[in-house]
Amino acid sequence: MTDTVSFGYENIDASEKTGRVGEVFSNVARRYDLMNDAMSGGMHRLWKDRFVRRLKPRAGEQVLDMAGGTGDIAFRIQRSGAQVTVSDINADMLAVGMERAQKKGLTGLVWSEQNAETLTFSDRQFDAYTIAFGIRNVTHIQQALGEAHRVLKRGGRFFCLEFSTTLWPGFAEVYDAYSHHMVPKLGKLLANDADSYRYLIESIRRFPDMPTFEGMIGKAGFVRTQVEPLLGGLVAIHSGWKI
């Protein structure tokens, strides 16, 4: 039986997804901040600040920031004195992150090209695992969650920031119309690439809702799972602990 997964609104062979997602992010790597601004109206910066505050990183901790290529989350975490390994499957995204770190004069970050589904790190290596706006692009999400659990120490924590489905009456329809019609147009205007931005919006619509994804985190072995909806669930901070 063929293993099919979603790529936006398409269903494709699972073996194709990594390559096709890679093309999208290679295309948008240099315009990634603009992409996030277009998709969130600039609010992604506030969401990321809140996400890292919830993580409560501490000096000396080892943190794996997965799908963190451009460094947005890692730069925030590093301020705490934690040791951050920034991992991404896409070399172009990592290149942008390393360039940004150099411009900011930031040193001490570890940059590592990794597939979230098959991490090369040792068991129980990290105190915390973060992934922001990346889990929905993984081919086999449950496998990636299992790998997150594997590389965390006992007592380690998992934090995920991801778009979801807002439950606020009326707002869902407004955002749906904005994202489907305006974001691809902005992608064309800002990056001459409407298709990549269209995929990114469609991938949000295909991502599991908050209770379903929380259940997947629990299935991976995490306990004390929690969900914090933002804007009624347009974005959610998911968390869990390894014991």
Rank of each mutant, 00 (worst) to 15 (best):
R157N: 08
V96E: 12
M43N: 01
K219R: 15
P184W: 06
P169S: 08
V5C: 02
E173P: 00
L106N: 00
Y129H: 12
S179Q: 07
T118W: 05
A91K: 09
R157C: 06
S6T: 13
G42N: 03
Q114D: 06
I141Y: 06
G19L: 09
I237A: 09
L119R: 07
L94A: 05
Q83G: 05
N27R: 15
D33N: 15
L189E: 01
R205S: 07
A29G: 00
L200T: 14
Q62H: 15
F121T: 07
A14T: 10
R206S: 14
S15L: 15
L189Q: 05
N11K: 11
R100I: 13
S87D: 00
G218C: 13
R136N: 14
A38K: 07
F213V: 08
M210Y: 09
F207V: 10
R45V: 13
E10M: 06
S203W: 14
R206C: 12
F222W: 06
K103F: 02
E228N: 01
I243D: 11
L109V: 11
Q125V: 04
S112M: 05
F207P: 10
F75L: 06
G215H: 12
L119C: 11
R58G: 04
R45A: 09
L109K: 05
M98Y: 00
P211Q: 13
G19C: 03
R224Q: 15
D72T: 02
L119Y: 08
Q83I: 04
G221M: 10
I73A: 05
Y175P: 00
G42D: 01
S6G: 03
E202N: 13
K104T: 00
F126C: 03
